Simulated assay, not measured.
Amino acid sequence: MFVGIFRKLIDSMERTWKNGLKIDNYDVKQLIGKGSYGTAYLVNHQENGKPAVLKRIRPYKKLVGNSMNYLENEMNALNDLSHPQIPALYAKGEYKGTPYFVMEWKNGKNFEQLIFGEEQSYSELESLQITAKLMNLVQWIHRKGYIHRDLRIPNILFYKNEISVVDFGLACLQEGIGSGKHKIHKDYMREKTVKSDFYAVGHFLLFLLYSSFEPSTKKEKSWEEELSLSNKTKRILRRLLQIERPYEDDNEVLNDLYAAIEFLK
């Protein structure tokens, strides 16, 4: 409780960088959002006018820990991953004692905007096809030795039928398969193994599937009771969500997704 009050107090003292502020070679345009450790701004390069995203450390992180660890972790991940569907790292620096870095601006809308803002709906087949696109990118991340650990719908973008993944603030290097010990659900996404990303992909798939769901009763039910799905899709979800034997390999997930897609076609 004290930590929450302390954080709110520190956050209240955070000054938003105003439109037009010059940070080295970039002009601040607007605040995009605030995460657990960073505040993101849309900026333009002063010479070519190209848009980019600047992320700075949040004030409370400078007081309660080594702030540069957060920035360095994300910068290292972006630099090492080097993929057209992942933001490229442009620059890093410090402004009035506040460390920051600048990365590529990715076109597209995130699935939180698409589902809840624009009320987009996806069929079972479309949901599986989109999830397969995401899994191909997740496979790349894993092959590079990283875990994203924050594959939520605000961090997954869709543009011209392609997926992009952003916000690598919680990304880390892999630590093997995992202990196999029972964990409560909220901890699954923070495990430093591929299974944490698979668990998040399962929730992403559920969001897509629920986008076309129309409840017939106010009674709360499980997804297995509410959603009318093929057995193949149900089994994929049960394994991603670690209800049944969890997936331990990207290829295994992709093979099952493609098999379900072909079945529905």
Rank of each mutant, 00 (worst) to 15 (best):
G117A: 05
K218G: 15
F207G: 00
S127M: 05
E224K: 14
K218I: 08
Y146N: 02
G65F: 04
R143S: 12
T233D: 06
L241F: 08
Q129G: 04
E248V: 13
A259F: 09
S164F: 05
D250W: 03
Y122K: 06
E118Y: 11
L157C: 08
L157S: 04
A259Y: 12
E175H: 08
S127A: 15
N161D: 15
I23M: 11
H83K: 09
Y258D: 13
D250R: 03
E248C: 04
A260D: 11
E14G: 05
A52S: 14
N44L: 12
K34H: 05
K183D: 04
T233A: 07
F116Y: 15
K61G: 01
P154W: 04
I236M: 06
R239Q: 10
D150C: 09
L209V: 14
F213Q: 06
A200V: 03
S36D: 11
N79V: 01
E14W: 03
E224H: 06
P246I: 00
I86Y: 04
K144N: 14
D27H: 09
N19M: 07
E119N: 14
Y26W: 15
G176F: 05
W223P: 03
R143L: 12
Y90E: 04
P51N: 10
P246T: 00
I243G: 01
K61S: 11
F168D: 02
E72L: 13
I115C: 09
L21T: 15
Y258A: 03
K106P: 03
L134W: 02
L125V: 09
G169L: 05
Y90R: 06
